[in-house]
Amino acid sequence: MSDKILMKGNEAIAEAAIRAGCTHFFGYPITPQNELPAYMAEKLPEQGGVFLQAESEVAAINMVYGASAAGARVMTSSSSPGISLKAEGISYIAGAELPCVIVNMVRAGPGLGGIGPSQSDYFQATKGMAHGDFRLAVLAPDSVQEAVDLTRQAFDIADKYRNPVMILGDGVIGQMMEPVEFKEIDSPELPEKDWIVDGAEGRERNIIHSLRLKTEDLTEHNWKLARKYEQMQEDEVRYEEKLMDDAEVAIVAYGTTARVVKTAIKEARAEGIKVGLIRPISLFPFPKKVIKKAAQQVDCFLTVEMSTGQMVEDVRLAVNGERSVAFYGSPGGAVPSPAEILVKLKEVME
């Protein structure tokens, strides 16, 4: 028997966060992420940390803002409608250059939508989500183990760049139980948090703010943020390639959808179709180089998403017109079946 334990995605992320040194959690109930705050409520106080159920998502993200400003590793989690409410606070957090980790177990929208798994918050997550010129780093696991590994990395990325990081899952990732292993990982060298507000005892005072009334200050600040995002593009791109060596078609898919695509590819390969998978793990920064490179090899691309077509725009940007990029979507809260994907794949190849 291995050291693996069987855990739900939501609970495994919470445990991974605690092991990553997360001491504070603020949240508000919403399906399908409720096991995550419940786990935090159970475990954090035992470790001397703080769990607080806020009066709203708006309050929760602003508590995150305060706790991060005060120097803590802090997390919040929600699902799509709740993330929309958090958007304001996330803009302030990014503007004030504070680290935090936000989990979005996406459900199908718009509005109240449904509670089924969905990837319809891709635009929201990767295109800045709220007012102003900023980005989140966005990590999208396709298994409970990867959710655990990425949670740890998310805190480090947040601290390294002083920027919010989002774990983008869906109902399946949150609710699914799979065996996980919590590996002991050494922390990377991270910058000292010399900017926190904790009472300016024996030092110069610190001010945390996003207001910059002088245009030259704000211009400089926004370029500084832009450079961070460029640096992420250099250092934080994560992806998986599967069976791409001889592929004539590449399917691009992330998260839960990528799992289904793997089954579809197995079946297609059994029929002699040379198809491979490119799975973006970091949705921002997007693995555009690997897709651009694949465009020199494959005849065409097929993007599969649980939406009406969001990531496909980034795939098309990366391919830059050199190959056709087809799309197959399932936007209502249902995971597409391998059979559906196979039908679309054959249609695309004609």
Partner: peptide, 23 residues
């Protein structure tokens, strides 16, 4: 389901378990 999944894991199998959820 959980018990079967857990036993499968103990027996060295690859396993996964997903519930229906919500209302």
């Amino acid at each position: 389901g959980q018990l079967l999944t857990y036993a499968g894991m103990k027996a060295g199998r690859e396993v996964s378990w997903i519930p229906s959820y919500g209302p």
